[in-house]
Amino acid sequence: MADTTTGRHNGEDWTAEDVARLRELADGNTPTGVMSIKLGRSEDAIRAKAQAEGISLAPANRPPYGKVSS
């Protein structure tokens, strides 16, 4: 399980900009581990906020993060 105590924003409230970035990363099929680094929050915090905001973290039917389809 992900470490829930690390991250530069640990314990801070999510801003509208944070949620918008989370949505953007999720739409881009970004893995939660990469989101964790980019947002400075634990994977557990990302999953919880995504669920609260109705943001799906399930992989979409498209190439994985960083891959370009031919």
Rank of each mutant, 00 (worst) to 15 (best):
M1F: 15
M1Q: 05
A2F: 07
A2W: 10
A2Q: 03
D3T: 00
D3G: 00
T4R: 06
T4F: 04
T5Q: 10
T5A: 01
T6M: 10
T6F: 09
T6D: 06
T6G: 02
T6P: 06
R8L: 04
R8T: 12
R8A: 01
H9E: 03
H9L: 04
H9Y: 12
H9T: 05
N10D: 05
G11R: 13
G11Q: 08
G11T: 07
E12V: 07
E12A: 15
D13Y: 05
W14E: 15
T15F: 10
A16M: 06
A16Y: 01
E17C: 00
E17F: 01
D18V: 02
D18K: 02
D18F: 10
V19S: 10
A20E: 09
R21C: 01
R21G: 06
L22V: 09
L22G: 05
L22N: 06
R23N: 02
R23D: 14
E24H: 13
L25G: 06
L25H: 00
L25S: 03
D27P: 13
D27F: 05
D27H: 15
G28D: 15
T30C: 10
P31T: 01
T32G: 10
T32R: 13
T32F: 07
T32A: 11
G33V: 03
G33Y: 02
V34P: 02
V34Y: 02
M35W: 02
M35R: 08
M35Q: 06
S36I: 03
S36A: 09
S36D: 03
I37Y: 12
I37K: 12
I37A: 14
I37R: 13
I37M: 11
K38P: 06
K38T: 03
K38E: 14
L39Y: 11
L39R: 07
G40I: 02
R41H: 12
S42E: 04
S42V: 08
S42M: 04
E43V: 08
E43G: 04
D44Q: 10
A45M: 08
A45E: 03
A45G: 07
A45R: 01
I46F: 01
R47M: 02
A48W: 06
K49A: 07
K49Q: 09
K49T: 07
K49P: 04
A50M: 06
Q51N: 11
Q51L: 09
A52C: 10
E53R: 12
G54C: 12
G54L: 01
I55S: 07
I55C: 08
I55T: 04
S56L: 09
S56K: 09
L57Y: 02
L57W: 15
L57C: 13
P59H: 10
A60V: 14
A60T: 14
N61Q: 15
N61R: 08
R62S: 14
R62Q: 15
R62K: 15
P63M: 14
P64Y: 00
P64M: 00
P64T: 05
Y65Q: 12
Y65C: 11
Y65N: 12
V68F: 04
S69M: 09
S70Y: 04
